[in-house]
């Protein structure tokens, strides 16, 4: 294990940054470097995944203990209420004493108003359960390894358009990975996770798959978890309400370039997803145009989950399709 706080000989990523990545507290400017480091350093990657599993376990324990934590033992609750009553009675007595002193001062000095402090209002009625911080989310469902080995059956553009419906004011642009020899092969809406999410897949010249999972999480969620199989690498990061997971073959250091392209391409270039488009019960029948054309924002955008089966693999071509890129003619490179 690397010494804490010290940069490794192999990169400038330190131990604190690895934990910050796990905890969702890594500054955005350092994500690319840390993710790149994890691609190179299998030992650190394994540790980070183990720490993620620990956090996921703690999240499950926390969720499982909700029922326990809500029900404070009646005798303890009673004892607490008694204590509060005692404290309140003492405060009232003190207030009375303070009032007497104040009155005396007023009488003696004959000037100004002397304020006496007020007892706190309220009473012990019930113990309210409110989560103090958002639970970690599993936006993509369980293990990604099960899906990452097969081509998604759905349509990529329809999936993108569907995800765009869940974004209100945060524009999203997906990177163009053709320069890295990756050809898009499909996409699908994910319905097993805790958040609206899609999977987008590319393949290289050898038929190996690279998957980008994109999810829209609640605004204050700090963490997102995924699990993958042993032969796969999973890299995670977050930008605003969007969480990303890039999954690819473990033995492909070229994934670093993919990560960099994805991170760089999210903010500029690539294929734009319009923000503010309401998600309907089914994908937009004009998938490609919907993914690239700006759509006026509705007054109250609604968010509705879409069953995965609602996105058919084969769909009729629109009357006037707008095809932003034609990728099939390009010869894919190998990862």
């Amino acid at each position: 294990m690397n010494g804490f706080g010290a940069a490794t000989a192999r990169s400038t990523v330190d131990e604190g940054e690895l934990h910050a990545l796990v905890d969702g507290r890594l500054p955005a400017g350092r994500r690319a470097a840390v993710l790149a480091h994890l691609l190179i350093d299998g030992g650190d990657r394994e540790r980070v995944e183990a720490y993620r599993r620990q956090l996921a376990g703690l999240a499950r324990i926390r969720a499982g203990l909700d029922r326990y934590a809500e029900g404070f033992a009646p005798e303890l609750q009673q004892a607490l209420a008694d204590t509060v009553r005692r404290v309140r009675r003492r405060r009232l007595m003190l207030r009375g004493a303070a009032g007497l002193v104040a009155a005396s001062l007023l009488l003696l000095a004959g000037f100004g108003a002397v304020r006496t402090w007020q007892a706190e209002p309220g009473a012990v009625t019930a113990i309210v359960y409110e989560p103090e911080f958002p639970l970690p989310e599993f936006p993509f469902g369980g293990s990604l390894g099960q899906t990452a080995t097969a081509r998604p059956e759905g349509d990529r553009e329809r999936s993108l358009a569907w995800l765009a419906g869940h974004l209100r004011d945060e524009p999203l642009k997906l990177p163009d990975l053709r320069g890295l020899g990756l050809v898009p092969v499909g996409g699908q809406v994910l319905t097993r996770g805790s958040a609206p999410a899609v999977r987008l897949a590319w393949t290289d010249g050898q038929g190996r798959m690279v998957d980008l999972y994109v999810g829209v999480v609640s605004s204050d969620a700090e963490r997102a978890f995924t699990m993958v199989g042993e032969s796969l690498v999973s890299l995670h990061w977050r930008r605003g309400r969007l969480v990303f997971a890039l999954v690819g073959p473990a033995e492909s250091p070229e994934l670093l370039q993919v990560v960099q392209a994805v991170i760089a391409g999210i903010g500029q270039g690539g294929e734009a997803l319009p923000a503010g488009k309401a998600a309907g019960p089914a994908p937009d029948p004009r998938p490609i145009r919907a993914a690239v054309e700006p759509v006026p924002s509705p007054a109250s955008p609604t968010v509705a989950p879409l069953p995965e089966k609602a996105a058919p693999a084969a769909e009729p071509a629109p009357a006037n399709p707008v095809v932003p890129v034609k990728v099939d003619a390009e010869k894919p490179k190998s990862l």
Binding site: I61, L65, A69, E70
Partner: peptide
């Protein structure tokens, strides 16, 4: 604006969960 007691009690579940572990 709120009762201090109520505000404290909102954190009971977190305290209990943390204390148990």
């Amino acid at each position: 604006r709120r009762s201090v007691d109520e505000e404290v009690l909102e954190h009971v579940s977190g305290l209990r969960r943390y204390a148990l572990l």
